[in-house]
Simulated assay, not measured.
Amino acid sequence: MKKVIITTFAALMLFACQNEQSDATNSETMAASRRGCATQEVLEAQLKADPMLAIKMNEIEAFTAKHGLSGFTGRLVNGKIEIPVVVNVLYRTSAQNISDAQIQSQIDVLNKDFNALNSDYNNVPALFSGVKANVGITFVLDQIIRKSTTKTSWGTNDAMKKTAQGGIAPTSPTTKLNIWTCNIGGGILGYAQFPGGASSTDGVVIDPRYFGLSGAANAPFNLGRTATHEVGHWMNLRHIWGDATCGSDLVADTPTHNEENYGVPAYPHYSTCSGTPVEMTMNYMDYVDDAAMYMFSTGQKNRIAAIFTAGGARASFAQ
């Protein structure tokens, strides 16, 4: 009888281990069908952990309201702010160890999207043509750091940014944009830290399956727009629906959205919020597929400019 119990227990343990391995494998192999960004959730957790962060972010908002139309100041390259990018690659599989070419393709996408050079920029409907904007920020690949890991997923608690937890600490985060690529898990494509957070966790995190144009990139998120969306957050842009029903993204020229949009919405897509405006579903800060997002607005450009101007939250990048 004792042998039977031991054998049964061993079988159950083996089954549990197999299920755990299967869940981990599914987490790594199942591609997301809808955009999932954890930036707002990460912000809420940071605000809960650090009450002073709310004060700092309120100060940033007050500065933005005052200086949002002043434009870039400080160090410029060809009239644009140039941002060095450090890409930190944490990989368990060969697919996660994305190639230099895939990384460069993502830098290229950022340069096109933030300079109105994307091929779909002219698809912006006439209704919004008067507010579509060239943000005028360029990105240069500064360094690639690679680290092998046994972790199957990293979550959204910033473990990938901490050496003590097996991650990679950010490189010069006050003068370089750090991007981590790793298997986040939970259907999350990426997340970013807003201006005002700790420099030790500053930057953007993106799953390698949605990074750049090649290799492990998976449709419908294979055009590099996850990084465009997350870098937008890093530059102080909110989700276009304000993370609330008919909420505010703190930008005057973006229409009020009911909520996030997914897939490829048919145009025009009307909001049921006050005034029933046509929603700007093609904005990079919505949740639509990569092929359906292709513009920033002038108001968003001005909001970004405020953080890089003298006294702004990311002014060190323009010095």
Results as ranks from 00 to 15, higher is better:
125 P>C: 05
175 T>L: 01
266 A>Q: 09
48 K>Q: 11
113 D>R: 02
224 G>C: 10
236 N>E: 11
105 S>T: 13
131 V>I: 13
315 A>L: 01
292 A>S: 09
299 G>S: 08
232 G>A: 07
143 Q>H: 11
303 R>G: 05
102 Q>Y: 13
114 F>H: 01
19 N>K: 06
207 D>Y: 04
122 N>L: 05
210 Y>Q: 06
28 E>Q: 15
80 K>G: 12
163 T>H: 02
61 E>R: 09
58 N>L: 15
139 F>S: 01
41 E>H: 10
148 S>I: 02
76 L>F: 06
218 N>V: 13
64 T>G: 08
316 S>Y: 00
33 S>K: 11
34 R>P: 00
235 M>H: 06
233 H>L: 06
270 Y>V: 08
150 T>E: 11
121 Y>Q: 05
88 N>I: 14
210 Y>R: 04
240 I>N: 10
186 G>Y: 01
227 A>F: 07
214 S>K: 10
66 K>D: 15
178 N>C: 01
245 T>I: 06
264 V>C: 08
96 Q>T: 09
281 T>D: 07
54 A>H: 01
177 L>N: 06
179 I>H: 03
141 L>I: 12
252 A>R: 09
104 Q>G: 09
2 K>Q: 14
274 S>K: 00
30 M>W: 07
44 E>R: 11
69 L>K: 09
81 I>Q: 10
90 L>H: 09
127 L>R: 05
213 L>Y: 04
138 T>G: 12
315 A>M: 00
243 D>N: 12
2 K>N: 15
189 L>T: 00
88 N>T: 15
10 A>I: 15
255 P>N: 10
212 G>Q: 03
308 F>C: 03
55 I>P: 09
233 H>Q: 02
298 T>L: 05
199 S>G: 02
220 P>L: 04
19 N>G: 13
262 Y>K: 08
282 M>R: 02
46 Q>I: 10
56 K>G: 02
297 S>N: 03
282 M>G: 05
142 D>L: 06
19 N>W: 07
212 G>S: 11
209 R>V: 15
303 R>S: 14
165 Q>K: 06
183 N>S: 08
111 N>I: 12
259 E>F: 07
118 N>P: 09
306 A>M: 03
205 V>S: 09
228 T>W: 01
64 T>P: 03
296 F>D: 01
163 T>A: 08
148 S>T: 04
297 S>F: 01
194 F>Q: 12
208 P>V: 07
180 W>H: 10
300 Q>E: 15
230 E>Q: 07
317 F>A: 06
138 T>Q: 06
243 D>C: 03
75 R>K: 14
269 H>Q: 10
265 P>N: 02
125 P>V: 00
90 L>G: 07
255 P>R: 04
2 K>A: 13
299 G>P: 11
39 T>N: 08
62 A>W: 02
224 G>V: 09
24 A>R: 03
307 I>R: 01
77 V>K: 09
248 S>T: 14
197 G>D: 10
41 E>G: 13
163 T>D: 08
